[in-house]
Structure formats: structure tokens, C-alpha cells
Design a protein around this nucleic acid. Sequence first.
DNA 1: GCCCGGTGAATTGTTCAACAATAATTATTG
DNA 2: CAATAATTATTGTTGAACAATTCACCGGGC
Lengths: 216, 216
Amino acid sequence: MPPHPPAVTDRAADRMRTAIMEGGLRPGEQLVEAEWTDRLGVSRNTLREAFRQLCREGLAEHQRHCGVTVRNLSAEDVREIFTIRRALELSAVATVTTPIAPHRLDSMRACVAAAADAAKAQDWRAVGSHSLRLHGEIVRLIGSPQLDAFFASVLAQLRLSFAINPDEAAFQAPWLDRDAAILDRLAETDPAGAASALRAYLDDSERGLLARFPAP
Amino acid sequence: MPPHPPAVTDRAADRMRTAIMEGGLRPGEQLVEAEWTDRLGVSRNTLREAFRQLCREGLAEHQRHCGVTVRNLSAEDVREIFTIRRALELSAVATVTTPIAPHRLDSMRACVAAAADAAKAQDWRAVGSHSLRLHGEIVRLIGSPQLDAFFASVLAQLRLSFAINPDEAAFQAPWLDRDAAILDRLAETDPAGAASALRAYLDDSERGLLARFPAP
DNA sequence: GCCCGGTGAATTGTTCAACAATAATTATTG
DNA sequence: CAATAATTATTGTTGAACAATTCACCGGGC
């Protein structure tokens, strides 16, 4: 039997999280307590705890007496996300001095394959998600669950910034091949090659995302 | 005027955090809600939120229907902490390609000086805290507040493991000089030298901490 | 017309009390 | 003594209440 039925507060947080990710909520939009207690059918205390979870994950922001709003990333925030990505993903790649465990490679290849399928189906949102999942797998090479959890929340924030722009198609397509290339280098136990490909990838990706913000 | 009086829940979390850190609570000890609502004079809801904060920081653990306990680190946990330290601190050191900003250097030197003072005063707990503060400053070189917050919680977990052993004197003393040496290399903008010194430092420190656990 | 302060509604912060669900403990039975 | 049933303690969740704060609205003075 399952260890425990999932907690009510977790289910509430899940539903709000997907609501944010699916784009039903705009960045900066306020999350009013009364509204969501009705919609989710949970008590205010439980809901507030769910809010706190979202804030902890960087998907929402809280200001005392002013409530919770969907996080609205600034250019500075995007830069920080990529600073973190560079630090962690490059660290991870550097640890690949011996061949990667087969099951790890399989997980990574599955991400790329899923992204390719989604691209064929023109589901660009899914493409982005699967690509980010691959990069989560890369960080897993470091071998720390705590780091994985932290990085997952960082990637979730990045996905949030995807939601801003409408033309995801043009944005997502070119990156697929580069993901695959990085993975190939990793499979060949070529950390230096993977690192340089990854660094270029991150630089370009950051540039592309920052271009959408009004010039400073 | 100050932006806001601090939230009740934060003050409660603070008091419990120091209680844990000062060693008043042993690892594995259970934190009963009723007991702490009395001691802190806050409501159960507020207290539960404070509990969750501690869990998020890795200072406590939560199991559904079984309450919250003070985190009890295993050898595996210590290994993970050092895995994270290696990834982040070495990443940080690698970013030092241009001279470090003077105020940053000042903060770091202040940590070493404070640790030295504490050593003179035989306050070994303080020595450990200041040394860890230095390593927190190192990670700040990366330039990400989110990463800083995450790393701070990792260091707090490590401090928790210090609380286990009684003879902190023998443990803390030798590391002071090595901290200073690493800082010198950083001040000279010598990332490679700092990296190798830091790597050796972390390896030795991890070994020393793991030695206290029963052999596998 | 526009700035200014005050009034009141709406929202959030915190507490309290109750009940349900689960785990731990004790009592009971064979 | 072992296994099981009943009891108790603790946590999970809810609902309502009240305080504190923000915000929008409104009227008066310049």
C-alpha cells in the first residue's frame, strides 16, 4: 500500500502550480485567498501553506499584508538563473571523468527523445519542459538530492519566463539539436567538449531570453 | 521607519533554530507541538509554519502524522554536504579571474579575524561558525542570492553535525591557517591555487567528520 | 482643478477551538 | 507470552473570530 495519501496542502499547491505553468495566470497577477479557497475547496490555513510552498519555489512572491502574486521575473532575475545554471551544470559536467551509468544515460536520452516527439507534434511548451528536464538530469550527475531539488525550482522559474512570450516555436526549435550534441559528448565521456558546448548553449539561451526585455 | 515588524512565525523559527544550534536539543529528538506552543507563546498554526521553515533548512525532519524531529545526520548526509560544498565553492573560486571587489575581501578577512579572536578565547563553537561564514562569503562570489540562501542552509546543517561531537577544540584549530591561506590566494587573484588548496581542505575536513561515524 | 487627510471596506496576519485521521500505548484475551 | 483489540496522544484540517494593514473612495481646502 502507498505510504500515505498525499497531503491536502500538497495537492492544493500542485493545482496552483500547474495553473501558473499552464499560463492561466499572468505574471504579477494577485492570488486572492478567498478566491482560491473556494476554487480548491480547502481551508484558508491550508491554502496559505500552499502559497508558502509556491513562494519557496520561486513561482510566487509574498509581501506582508499585500498578499501573494505570481512571480514576475525581471531581466536581472533571468541573469541570476543563468548564473546558477552555469555554476551547477558546468560543475556537473566536470564530474564526468568516468563513463556515466547506463541508466542515467537512458533517462537523459529519454528527455531528448520526448522533446523531439513534442517538436513533431508542435507542442512547444512540452519541448521546453523536456529540454529543461534534461538539464535537471545533468545536474543529477553531481549526486546530491538537495541540489537536485534546488535546481528543479530554478528550472521551474525559468519555465515561468517561457510563459511570457507567445512565439515559443521560433524560440524552442533550434535548441533541440544542441541538447542532443551535449548529450553525445557526455556519452563519450568528454567533459571538456560537453562543457564548452554547454557554455555556449547557456550563453546563447540567456541572450535570447534577455532580448525580450526592454533595453536597460 | 522599518518596513515591517518581523513576522511572529519568523521569530518563533529563530528561537527554535538557536535552541537547536546551541545544542539544547539533541539530534533525533522530537519537537512536540503542544510543548512549543506553550514555550513560545504562539498559536499552533504559526508554530507549524515555523516547523516547516526549519525542515526546509534541513535542520529538522517531518514525517506525516509522526511530527517533527531534530535532524540527525548520517555519514551519507555529511558526504552529500561536502559534495555540495565542492560543487559550489569550487565554482565560486573559478569565477575569480579579475581582482575581487575590495569590500568583498574585507568581509572575508573579517571572518578570518573573528575566527582567530574566537580561537584565542577558546570559543570553538564560534570558531566553527566564523569559518563557515567565510565559506559562505566564498560562494557569494558567484553572485546569486538564491544560491547564497541555499548554501547557507547547507552550512547550517553542517554546523548541526558539529554539535554532535564534544571535543571541538582539536577539530577546529588546524583549519584556521588553511582558511587564511585560501583567502590569500583569492586576494592574489590566483583561482587555480585557491582551488587546489580549497579542494584539499574540503577533502580533509570531510574525512575528519566522517571519522566520527561508526565504520560501515 | 488638484492636492490633502479621513473614513470605511477589503484583504491579510494571527489566534483559538473543534473534530478527523493516524500512530503509539496500554489492556485484554487466548 | 504472543497476538489482538481498545485507549490515548499527537498530528492534519477545518471554520470562525478578531487585529492589523492596505487600498479606494470621498469631501474639504487651496
